[in-house]
Computed example of a mutant assay.
Amino acid sequence: MRMMTRLEEARSLDPVSDKLQAAVYAAVKPQFLRDLLHGTWLGHPLHPVLVQVPVGSFISAAILDLLPGKRRSSTVLIAAGTAAVTPAVAAGLLDWSQMTKDRRRVGLVHAAANTVAVGLYTASLVARLRGRNSRGKALGFAGLSVAGLGAYLGGHLSYAQSAGVNQAAPEVVRVPEEWTEVCSLADLPDGRPVVRTVADVRILVYRRGAEVSALIERCGHETGPLGEGEVSGEGADACVTCPWHGSVFRLSDGAVVHGPAASDQPSLRVRVSEGKVSVAQP
């Protein structure tokens, strides 16, 4: 773990990280493509889904390599796994480009390890196709070992550094379960969200006529302040854009409209009674 901490703090990686980040920005410009690769349409990041194909293929090939008479099957699996790497890399790089510097440092080494692994598997495939099966097996096992290191780093990103998770979700449980008054209806401007605090949790409250909605104010992607974001649209279709990374959420229900956020912004129950607005956990 001390090694991982040193990696998170390795500022020497930042020049390479910054250049790669700029290259990813330049390569993926259309918003629909960004949303597709971020997994906005899926409800969670797409990258973990896509990596199942190459990882499953490579592990299955390794098992078959230990059995007699399975040369053709393992070769097909390695070919399939190598081909499936490209979309997984595309989604992973785009997610990585929107992370904080400490996460990007770990992610850079994660990507480097997986690049080496793919290179070994490509060499393994070439060797197998040329009839050099023993060499192909050795390269395949080497690729799986390096891919294991990459997987460890990916796990550290997800579980130790919370990359790719909805970082606003923990705030919901800090909101009281019972109805808690936040303001009067008259204090809320129509069509413009305001920030209120409940039990030290910042809430984004939005009024449209007599209807009121409330979202966790800190963006689920990287905790950006949605209260400082730009509002677009009107009525039930009004949205707020996170000022940090540009995620767009519908104010009426927190639905994610554009990434990099891949999941909805957590919303709260709202009650308007006798001119007073109260919120509670969902």
Rank of each mutant, 00 (worst) to 15 (best):
D95N: 10
L36M: 13
R202K: 14
P170E: 11
P189T: 07
G155E: 03
F141S: 03
D200T: 13
G235N: 09
L46E: 11
A163V: 02
M99A: 14
S134M: 04
G69Y: 05
W96H: 04
G150V: 05
V53S: 01
R128G: 13
V182W: 03
S252C: 09
G235S: 11
G220L: 08
A168G: 15
Q21K: 12
P225Q: 03
G140N: 09
S213C: 04
L50R: 06
L77P: 07
I216P: 01
L139S: 10
E177A: 15
P282E: 12
R72G: 00
D35G: 08
L188G: 08
V51S: 09
R218G: 05
L188K: 10
S97F: 02
G148Y: 07
A280T: 12
Q281D: 11
A169W: 11
S17L: 04
C239E: 15
V240A: 05
G150Q: 08
D18C: 01
K19L: 13
L13Q: 06
L153F: 03
L120Q: 03
P45V: 10
A88Y: 10
P68K: 05
E234K: 10
A142I: 07
A113Y: 02
H110V: 07
R207C: 09
L64D: 03
L67P: 02
Y206T: 06
L93Q: 12
A90Q: 04
R104K: 14
K101H: 06
L149D: 01
Q161R: 09
T241I: 08
V256Q: 00
G235A: 10
E230R: 14
Q281R: 15
V118S: 05
Q98R: 09
V205E: 07
A160E: 11
T75H: 03
T241S: 13
V118G: 01
D95I: 01
S273F: 01
A22F: 00
D187Q: 15
V53D: 02
G220T: 08
L94Y: 02
I63P: 02
R202A: 14
A62L: 10
K70I: 00
Q265L: 03
G246T: 10
P189M: 04
P54S: 13
H221I: 07
E228K: 15
P193S: 06
A238Q: 09
G92D: 09
V109R: 02
G191Y: 05
V277A: 11
V49A: 15
R135P: 04
T197R: 13
G229P: 05
R250D: 09
E222H: 04
A255Y: 00
E234A: 14
V257P: 00
D65T: 06
F58C: 00
A112Y: 08
S74P: 00
V28S: 03
A62F: 04
V49T: 14
A113K: 01
T82I: 07
A214L: 04
H221E: 07
